[in-house]
Design a protein around this nucleic acid. Structure first.
Lengths: 218, 218
DNA sequence: GGAGCCTCGTGCATCCGTTCACAAAGTCTA
DNA sequence: TAGACTTTGTGAACGGATGCACGAGGCTCC
């Protein structure tokens, strides 16, 4: 057997792996031991051919005539996504959104423990939100470096987002999840993903205005 | 002149129009009256050819040798996105996320007034969050229909997301923004967009584990 | 052991989106 | 008015993603 297929996995496939993962967790919770690409497709909201092609990039983990072993596939997808280890995160911006994210327990449980919150407001610095201390924004590089934080979440107003991104990068963060409505410029070695509320609503507005088209998106 | 070009606008272009819109608002705020595709591309974080092709789907609004009139283009993009009118929204789920969304003023200002919050918890029903009354989830169809709500935002736990989506659809909502980590099944006439925190973090985890690739995405 | 059935894995055609490169069309200067 | 310069709008080539359709491989039952 080849030790590791090492095929390059298309970006579109990577984006779907977490959805398959969730479907597999659900199946495992229902004590299902084996599943088909058809069933997985149904749970993930895609078509079966796509499921098979996506999974084939990870290796040949199915059995023809039978399907996929849920537990085994679960492990393989987790490993491929790098979820066999924890990735500590920090949240910058302790406003409404930052606080909601910190309170949303789903992170720590799933391998993304929140190790610190940052803000620039002296009134907030020193308080505790969801069991996490709020620190001074200026300490980002030091804390991030000291704690080996891999992922930074930006939940600040747009005007300071770029400065925050620079601070995170200075501390050695290699991935940023940006909630601020601003385009970030970072070193190509840093991965950035953007979540923008206003943009999503405006896209819906477009299709609302038009006829009954459908728009499904990430 | 053709009354309306009425070309079909590609999905990828629609997703970028809000970003151009924001860039144009920024330029207008700086009292810039004319801009080039080059400059717009820089602000939006894409390349200039893409800007020109995207804008060309709306019509021929630029002037060769000069560029685009900021105010005029701003209006055209707004109109194309259906932002010349307000789209009332409701938020379902008055937990951390729902409350944060309601408190985040950016909605109402930008043409998406929050007309109601819904929850199933009797302890929350009747309270007021960010000036909006929390109503009983079971009243969704009635309230939505009565207020002509176009867009529903789902900020509930995953297990009830599908039920909520059905209630929204029953009330005549034609667009749904789904924050719950669940795949929704709805009539094709309803547009659904999904924002999933865990998925975003897991995608970052993948690239984190791999070499220094970059992943930019919405 | 063989026939029939099931489901994966994948080659191939197609579609959508991106990018290049250039003609068209306008401005500005002399 | 002519000629140089600027920037748009778009045809065409390219690349990535999708979906079909089918061969390969494995199971079950007689």
């Amino acid at each position: 057997m080849a030790e590791r297929p090492r095929r390059r996995i298309p970006e579109a496939t990577v984006a779907r792996l977490p959805v398959y993962l969730r479907s597999l967790v659900e199946l495992a919770g229902d004590r299902v031991s084996t599943t088909s690409s058809e069933r997985l497709a149904e749970l993930a909201g895609v078509n079966a051919a796509k499921v098979r092609k996506d999974l084939s990039y990870l290796g040949s983990y199915g059995t023809r005539g039978v399907g996929y072993d849920v537990e085994y596939l679960l492990f393989q997808v987790s490993r491929e996504l790098g979820l066999t280890q924890d990735w500590p995160v920090v949240i910058v911006g302790a406003g409404n959104l930052g606080a909601a994210l910190a309170n949303y327990g789903g992170f720590g449980d799933r391998g993304f423990p929140v190790v610190a919150l940052f803000d620039s407001d002296p009134a907030k610095i020193g308080t505790t939100i969801a069991g996490v201390k709020v620190l001074d924004q200026r300490d980002i590089p030091r804390v991030v470096q000291a704690s080996g934080v891999a992922i930074g979440i930006i939940a600040t107003p747009a005007p300071v987002a770029q400065d925050v991104a620079d601070l995170l990068a200075a501390g050695g963060v290699r991935s940023i999840l940006n909630f601020a409505p601003a385009v970030l410029t970072v070193d190509p070695s840093v991965s950035v993903r953007k979540v923008d509320l206003a943009v999503e609503l405006q896209i819906l507005s477009f299709y609302q205005q038009r006829g009954p088209n459908q728009a499904v998106g990430s």
